[in-house]
């Protein structure tokens, strides 16, 4: 082993030590200047190392097997970065301790408490009612809007397109305030109805866009073919147009359902007494400090989502095989 290699190895060790130290220090809550100093030092080291980069390359060449694993390590690192918080959340939902820092043994008590917690179930019910109605309404209206936008061209449709597109780019908080002002001005009592109307407003845009993108690569001659074969425009719509764009409608509906389910900002503005949705309920529970209950609830939601995706995959696989 040459001197140079020893030197490089030493520098690597130092770098690794610094990195580790920096990570640990930051995690333990070191101050901002400390973190900055570390970063600058780290960058300086990198700059100092640059003259020997070709040597490093040679070193990497010689130790291919180790470095070949790097992409794999990176992938796992990123996955860990994304899913570690969720894993921690799941583990903590079974933690007997109230605080997430210490492990006091395995327990189901938070789940038991959760099932007894009437407000959560009430909120869940409200959320589902809102989501189902908003999804149904926005899917129908959005599909019709998309068909109109696709079929007709002109000033009115251009304006229509802008109106549909706006909720996608306007900050949610503006939409929330706007809707609140609107309901107050019309003296509509805030409640489940206002939440549903608000959800339809923004879900509509997503559904329209999803269906419209499907319509864009739609071959219009099949509509003509259908009419040519004797179908009325009503029959054509039901037997040709809707089935062909159905994947777009379905993805729009799923998108609407998901968005409605976890919308917080807009719901927060337009919800009245007795129309608390799940995200708002969770928010207020965090404020009151009932973290373990939320952990349990989140774990349940996670499990439901996971199972749903699993079933979907199995069904799709089976469908593809036949």
């Amino acid at each position: 082993m040459t001197h140079l290699e020893k030197f490089i190895r030493a520098i690597h060790t130092i770098l690794l030590a610094f990195l580790t130290y920096g990570l640990v220090a930051n995690l333990l809550g070191k101050s901002f200047p400390m973190a900055t100093t570390q970063t600058i030092l780290f960058l300086l080291l990198l700059v100092l190392l640059s003259p020997v980069r070709s040597r490093i390359a040679a070193f990497i060449d010689r130790h291919q097997p180790v470095f070949n694993k790097f992409p794999g390590i990176l992938t796992w690192g990123i996955l860990l970065f994304f899913y570690l918080p969720i894993i921690l959340l799941v583990i903590n939902s079974f933690n007997a301790s109230r605080t997430s820092g210490s492990w006091d043994g395995f327990t189901f008590k938070w789940y038991v408490q959760l099932f007894k917690h009437r407000e959560i179930w009430y909120a869940l019910r409200s959320t589902l009612i809102v989501a189902v109605i908003a999804t149904a309404a926005s899917t129908i209206l959005g599909t019709l809007a998309a068909i109109a936008l696709h079929k007709y061209k002109g000033y009115i449709q251009n304006a229509h397109y802008c109106l549909v597109y706006t909720p996608l780019i306007v900050p949610e908080i503006l939409l929330g305030i706007g809707l609140l002002l609107f309901f107050v001005a019309l003296k509509v009592e805030l409640g489940l109805t206002t939440v549903i109307i608000a959800h339809i407003t923004f879900c509509l845009s997503y559904v329209t866009m999803a269906v419209l993108s499907r319509l864009q690569d739609f071959d219009n001659s099949i509509i003509e073919a259908s009419e040519d074969l004797g179908a009325s425009s009503w029959t054509t719509t039901w037997r040709v147009l809707i089935p062909v764009i159905f994947p777009g409608i379905l993805s729009g509906a799923l998108l609407a359902f998901t968005l409605s389910l976890d919308d917080f900002v807009i719901s927060f503005f337009v919800a009245g007494p007795g129309s608390t949705t799940l995200p708002i309920q969770i928010y207020s529970m965090i404020k009151r400090g009932s973290m373990p209950l939320i952990n349990a609830l989140s774990t349940l939601l996670l499990a439901i989502t996971f199972i749903a995706i699993l079933i979907y995959q199995i069904v799709m696989n089976r469908k593809n095989k036949t």
């Binding site: 071959d219 001659s221 099949i222 003509e224 073919a225 259908s226 040519d228 074969l229 040709v240």
Partner: peptide, 10 residues
């Protein structure tokens, strides 16, 4: 009845 250039099959 028409046979379309792009076939226009459903």
């Amino acid at each position: 009845n028409t046979v379309f250039q792009s076939y226009a099959l459903f």
